[in-house]
């Protein structure tokens, strides 16, 4: 069986997170996920207790399961996966 050469190199997520951790701390934790080289966080909406952010994660062969698990561990929730780039 041949190895699957495709790798997840970019994903854009719509995330709901509490104010703490801050966007900086949040993105720093995401950057520790396997395969992640670049993280861009953009605040879309702010309310009393939460922020809605657009998180763009780029790298090579990003471990999406670890990414999901890290977002959850930080007390945030992925509302939707808005963009995916797979490179062969």
């Amino acid at each position: 069986m041949s190895e699957d050469p495709s790798s997840l190199s970019r994903v854009v997520l719509d995330i709901l997170k509490p104010h703490i951790p801050t966007l900086v701390d949040f993105c720093k934790e995401i950057s520790k996920v396997k395969g992640v080289k670049k993280v861009n966080g953009l605040v879309v909406e702010v309310d009393a207790e939460t922020d809605s952010i657009k998180l763009t994660v780029e790298g090579k062969d990003i471990d999406f399961e670890e990414l999901e698990s890290t977002v959850k561990k930080l007390g945030a929730a992925i509302h939707s996966v808005d963009e995916v780039l797979i490179e062969g």
Binding site: L16, P18, I20, P21, E29, A48, E49, T50, K72, K73, L74, G75, A76, A77
Partner: peptide, 17 residues
């Protein structure tokens, strides 16, 4: 508890809690 109400989810096991 306030955070859980705002996030509409159980936060047990998270770094935050």
């Amino acid at each position: 508890k306030e955070l859980q109400d705002a996030m509409l989810t159980n936060l047990e096991g998270t770094i935050l809690v």
